[in-house]
Computed example of a mutant assay.
Amino acid sequence: MSRLWRTLGVLILLSVFAPVAAAADVDLVKQRVAKVGVLRGDFTQEKQVTGFKNPLRSQGRFVLAQDHGVIWTTLKPFPSEVVVTRDRILSRQSDGSTRVELDAKQQPAMRSVNAIMFALMSGDAQALSAQFTVKVDALPNNGWKMQLSPRSAMLGKVFTGLKLSGDRYVREVEITEANQDVTRIHFASMSETPAALSAEEGGKFE
């Protein structure tokens, strides 16, 4: 995930902002997706690399805090943690060592990385439509799916398309890269409680 955020941050500076998606599309997702301060859940990630038979799999848990950022904790196959804030991306390894991967003081695009990452995980169609052409379909039981196509040629050199689907929450994200590698992320066991970060969670953003 950190590689994806890093790439997005660089390209956002180079891409051209375009008009947002059709209001009806944006409104549909706005009405169906929950707006919560803190959301916790589990994830499973599968990446199919071109030329390899078996996909790369990982799983773990996440904390999405609207006022702070995201804690992305991989449990399998190798423990690690990525913490994304407004100003930086931190990578923590299983031995407790920490490495600053991106710092907004050195790379101002970091602030845009945060915005795009939040938009993907929260299903914010309006934010995503600044960089992608957005098509939204309504599904039964308050469900929806969203297809994203890059607006700029520069962004198209990295992604050929993204797909999101969900209901009250984003449930699945599929990312197809220009080299045809495909990453699928499934979110489960989402919880809006407790509504505040624990002391341990809050400390990770400091």
Results as ranks from 00 to 15, higher is better:
residue 54 N to T: 14
residue 180 Q to K: 15
residue 98 T to G: 00
residue 195 A to Y: 06
residue 184 R to M: 03
residue 148 L to N: 07
residue 90 L to H: 07
residue 192 E to K: 15
residue 89 I to R: 10
residue 168 R to C: 06
residue 24 A to I: 07
residue 176 T to Q: 10
residue 111 R to P: 03
residue 148 L to K: 04
residue 11 L to Q: 01
residue 14 L to H: 08
residue 68 H to Y: 11
residue 15 S to F: 05
residue 148 L to R: 02
residue 86 R to N: 13
residue 105 K to G: 07
residue 191 S to K: 15
residue 78 F to N: 10
residue 80 S to G: 14
residue 23 A to Y: 07
residue 146 M to D: 09
residue 69 G to F: 04
residue 124 D to R: 12
residue 33 V to R: 12
residue 23 A to L: 06
residue 163 K to Q: 13
residue 142 N to C: 01
residue 119 A to Q: 06
residue 119 A to V: 12
residue 161 G to H: 02
residue 27 D to Y: 07
residue 78 F to I: 13
residue 109 A to R: 10
residue 72 W to A: 05
residue 30 K to M: 01
residue 167 D to Y: 07
residue 99 R to H: 11
residue 120 L to K: 09
residue 82 V to R: 02
residue 80 S to C: 06
residue 152 S to C: 06
residue 96 G to S: 14
residue 178 A to Q: 12
residue 15 S to G: 11
residue 182 V to S: 03
residue 168 R to W: 10
residue 81 E to I: 11
residue 173 V to F: 00
residue 120 L to S: 08
residue 187 F to N: 09
residue 48 Q to W: 07
residue 49 V to D: 00
residue 92 R to G: 09
residue 69 G to K: 06
residue 170 V to Q: 12
residue 112 S to C: 04
residue 7 T to I: 02
residue 201 E to A: 11
residue 62 F to S: 02
residue 180 Q to F: 05
residue 102 L to P: 06
residue 2 S to L: 04
residue 190 M to C: 12
residue 29 V to L: 03
residue 163 K to V: 00
residue 189 S to G: 12
residue 50 T to Y: 02
residue 117 M to P: 05
residue 43 F to R: 11
residue 161 G to S: 09
residue 25 D to Q: 13
residue 137 D to G: 09
residue 66 Q to E: 12
residue 58 S to I: 10
residue 81 E to W: 11
residue 121 M to V: 10
residue 11 L to A: 03
residue 84 V to E: 01
residue 153 A to P: 04
residue 85 T to P: 00
residue 161 G to C: 13
